[in-house]
């Protein structure tokens, strides 16, 4: 019975993970706040006199992806060390419980802490900026445009990408016992480059008078009434593929991580 997923054991794992690493988490939070403060100070110095809130969102995503990647790449660094690996692998909990606990800390908890830290530092910066603008009439602060639904869609894509990248770095931390962040980053860059090269090859193969995207190909033909011939995947498959591309990466990477954890030998 106790070999299946147990929420009670997961709770004990979370408790153990938190208190055994409380000092690391406290210093990491301070480091995030410190780095964000430095970034905002830099923005304050460089972005003036006409400040635009858009720049802070760039900082938000850059920090989220970079910090998240570093943190996720450390997820299973204990497996690169025999002593720590034995301590971790012989703890009576399933590999899935251990993985879920790790995801909760590296992805969920990190995101919450990062967002809170960001908005704290941002609020303080904007407060100081408002005072600064009052005493410097030549300067201004423009809030970001509310993009409405489009904005929330972009946010959703970014968050999906963030979770997928986090999952990939967690997987990297199981594969690479040393320099997991650097090696996973190199692998990511190599994969992106390979994909770009593949797209480039596809463009060479496809006719010159065509344009294409993931699910359709439009071949222009002046002899036709509508001016082009359209090849496309059915709408059902298209929406399924879009859904997969948005949401499937992280579960796939988590699944591979789980398999790798089960196979891990120390």
């Amino acid at each position: 019975m106790s070999d299946t997923f147990s929420f009670s054991r997961l709770g004990k794992l979370i408790n153990k993970q938190f208190f055994e690493n409380a000092r690391l988490y406290a210093f990491s939070t301070l480091a995030i706040v410190g780095l964000l403060a430095i970034s905002f100070a830099f923005w304050f110095e460089m972005a003036g006199p006409n400040y635009n809130e858009d720049g802070t969102y760039m900082m938000f995503f850059l920090g989220l992806f970079l910090g998240g990647g570093v943190f996720a790449a450390m997820s299973f660094n204990m497996l690169g060390n025999r002593d720590k690996g034995i301590y971790w692998l012989t703890l009576p909990a399933t590999h899935l419980e251990k993985l879920v606990c790790t995801i909760l800390f590296t992805t969920v908890a990190f995101t919450i802490i990062y967002c809170l830290s960001f908005f704290l530092v941002k609020s303080v910066t904007i407060m100081l900026l408002t005072e600064y603008i009052k005493s410097n009439p030549g300067s201004s602060y423009v809030k970001a445009n509310n993009l409405g639904n489009e904005g929330s869609l972009v946010m959703r894509y970014f968050m999906c990408a963030f979770i997928a990248i986090q999952a990939f770095y967690i997987l990297g931390s199981v594969y690479f016992s040393r320099y997991a962040f650097v090696i996973t980053s190199v692998v990511t860059a190599a994969l992106i480059f390979s994909f770009a090269y593949y797209v480039h090859l596809l463009e060479d193969i496809l006719p010159d008078n065509s344009s294409w995207n993931l699910v359709s190909l439009r071949e222009y033909n002046e002899n036709r009434e509508d001016g082009y011939r359209l090849y496309s995947i059915s709408p059902a498959i298209t929406s399924f593929l879009k859904y997969l591309l948005q949401f499937a990466w992280a579960p796939i990477f988590w699944f591979i991580t789980w398999v790798r954890l089960r196979e891990k030998e120390i």
């Binding site: 106790s2 025999r82 002593d83 703890l91």
Partner: peptide, 13 residues
């Protein structure tokens, strides 16, 4: 490495 097994063994490495 099932929990049923692991909670019945301990290693002092």
């Amino acid at each position: 490495r099932h929990p049923d097994f692991l909670h019945n063994v301990f290693i002092v490495a």
